[in-house]
Structures are given as structure tokens and as C-alpha cells.
């Protein structure tokens, strides 16, 4: 029971990170029907930005309260990652809109390879360890054999994720921007005829996806205390799995899917074998797509004849 509780906490933490990344996939897929393959690497870039910001704060100001450091990291990472994703969309995807179906996908794979190599070349191939923050834990259940604990950083990850998701939800559901996005999702041509700036809406979608990925990047960096140029692929594919599991195109689905993938991975590692945890995640992806292609919360698709 104690083990179960502890794994639940760990799983939700990991799942929050996956959920944040998954939203970027699901939104982009919803609006332009493209699997943004580079999204995982955008996430990795954001983790590096956070790490460098952290070091920069240390170098310039000396020691600051951890909370302020994290807020600064969040702000810088969100702004710069958004800029990255905006530029990527502008340069590598927009000219291919309405072109051959595979072209944007190949372009995205190119961007993904470019980003991980860019970071490798500029920052070096070694893992980058960061001093731990918020390592203190609160012991929830004390027992002679096993203490269930939640660390401050886990609390922070859950709280920040929840707040951001709420804000984001409001943005997409209640504002005219969100309405424009949903209109573009339905019918881009019609939306533009009704005076919606489609290019701008799509750009904003990429920016929003990147901002959330940046939050995930900061959280990832704080949680694991180490980043590497190759960290984009695995979380990226897991987050995509989460988006598909939840029903691609559905925002709540992305979050639910992220939490599920996080939980499955953590429980699999705890109860079965850590070796095959990725196999478990990928198998779930395959099984979901085969038996329930619309995902948990997605809309079923009727074949148009």
C-alpha cells in the first residue's frame, strides 16, 4: 500500500510533465493536422534554456531564493522557447502548408535532428548535472518499512501544472483567440473568409504549445537535475503517445493521457521491470491506436465516402 501511494505520487509528477508536452502535440495536430515531430526537441531546448538561465542567475546575482529562481527560469524559458517554436513554424512549416502531405512531416523530422545536433554542438554532448533544488520532502505516511514522501519539487510540479492548465483552459475556451483556433480547426478556408487571420492563429498555437513545453522543460530539469541533448526524443514520443491515448485534438485528453502514461510507466517500473518500461508505453500506444483510434476523449471519425 505504501509503495502504491508513493508510486502514485511519482506517477502523477511524471504524468504532469508528459501532459504539458502532449498539449503542444494535440493543439498543433488539431489545427493543421500535422504531427509536429520536433516538439520533443523543442521541449529539450527549453530544458537547456532553463538550465543556462539558472547558471546565469547564479553567476550574475549569486544566491537567490529558489522560488524566484524558478519563476525567472519559467519566464525566460517560456519566452525563448516560444520564440524558437515561432521561428520553426515560420521557416520550416508555413511554406509547406497545403503542400504534399509528407513534406511537413519530413521537415519536422529535419528540425528535430537539427535541434538535437545544434544543442550538442553548442553545448557539448555530455550530460549536464544541475544542483538539486527543493529537495526537502514531507513525509505523508510513516511506517517502519517504507515512508511515503512527497518532495517540495513534486508539489511544485503538480501545482504549477494545475495553475497553468487552468489558465490555458480559460484562454482556449473563453477568449476570442480560442474561438479563432477552434474555427481554424474546423475549416481553415472558411475561417479566413470570415476574417480570422489564420496564419497568426496557427503561429499563436505553436507559441502556446512551446510555452507549455517550456514549463515542462523547467519542471523536468528541476525534477531530474540533469539534462542532455538527447532528452527530446523519449519524452517527446511518450507525450505523443499520451496525446493519442487521450484522443488527439482533445486538450483534456492530452492531460488525462499524460497522467495515464506517467502512471503506467512508474507502476510498470515499480511492479514489473524497469527494463521494459518504454516497451510498455509504446505497446499501449500501438494497442490504443489499433483498437480505439479516437482515443479516450476524442471524437470518433466517420469515413467520408
Amino acid at each position: 500500500m505504501e509503495v502504491f501511494l508513493q508510486q502514485l505520487i511519482n506517477g502523477i509528477t511524471l504524468g504532469s510533465i508528459y501532459g504539458l508536452i502532449a498539449i503542444g502535440y494535440t493543439m498543433v495536430f488539431g489545427i493543421i493536422g500535422m504531427v509536429n515531430f520536433a516538439h520533443g526537441d523543442v521541449f529539450m531546448v527549453s530544458a537547456f534554456i532553463a538550465m543556462i538561465t539558472f547558471l546565469l542567475i547564479g553567476a550574475l546575482v549569486g544566491s537567490v531564493p529558489v522560488v524566484i529562481a524558478i519563476v525567472l527560469m519559467l519566464v525566460v524559458a517560456m519566452v525563448l522557447t516560444s520564440l524558437w517554436n515561432w521561428t520553426i513554424e515560420r521557416v520550416a512549416y508555413r511554406p509547406l502548408r497545403g503542400s504534399f502531405r509528407l513534406a511537413p512531416l519530413i521537415s519536422a523530422i529535419g528540425v528535430s535532428i537539427f535541434l538535437s545536433n545544434f544543442v550538442q554542438v553548442t553545448q557539448g554532448p555530455r550530460n549536464k548535472p544541475v544542483p538539486g533544488m527543493l529537495n526537502d520532502v514531507i513525509i505523508l505516511v510513516e511506517s517502519p518499512t517504507y515512508n511515503v514522501a512527497i518532495s517540495y519539487k513534486q508539489i511544485m510540479i503538480m501545482v504549477v501544472t494545475a495553475i497553468l492548465l487552468a489558465a490555458f483552459w480559460y484562454l482556449v475556451q473563453k477568449t476570442s483567440l480560442g474561438r479563432a483556433q477552434r474555427a481554424c480547426e474546423q475549416d481553415r478556408k472558411m475561417a479566413s473568409l470570415l476574417g480570422i487571420d489564420v496564419d497568426r492563429t496557427i503561429s499563436i498555437t505553436f507559441v502556446m504549445g512551446a510555452a507549455l513545453a517550456a514549463v515542462a522543460g523547467v519542471m523536468y530539469m528541476v525534477y531530474y537535475g540533469v539534462v542532455s541533448f538527447s532528452d527530446g526524443f523519449n519524452p517527446g514520443v511518450k507525450a505523443f503517445t499520451a496525446a493519442v491515448l487521450g484522443g488527439i485534438g482533445s486538450l483534456p485528453g492530452a492531460v488525462v493521457g499524460g497522467l495515464l502514461i506517467g502512471l503506467i510507466e512508474v507502476f510498470w517500473s515499480a511492479y514489473f521491470t524497469i527494463d521494459y518500461k518504454d516497451v510498455a508505453a509504446f505497446s499501449i500506444l500501438a494497442i490504443t491506436l489499433i483498437f480505439m483510434p479516437q482515443g479516450l476523449l476524442g471524437k470518433p471519425e466517420v469515413e467520408k465516402v
Binding site: 509547406l96 503542400s99 504534399f100 513534406a103 519530413i106 529535419g110 528540425v111 528535430s112 538535437s116 545536433n117
Partner: peptide, 21 residues
């Protein structure tokens, strides 16, 4: 050799932009 991946990725994008088909 370090720059191979960088150039490889970038050239994939460039060729797609140039000749999507």
C-alpha cells in the same frame, strides 16, 4: 564530423522547402 547531424537536419528542411515532392 560533429556538424554532420546539424547539416543533415537542416538540409532535410531546406530540400523539403525547395522541392516538397
Amino acid at each position: 564530423a560533429l556538424y554532420r547531424g546539424l547539416i543533415f537536419g537542416a538540409s532535410m528542411v531546406v530540400i523539403m522547402l525547395w522541392k516538397p515532392r
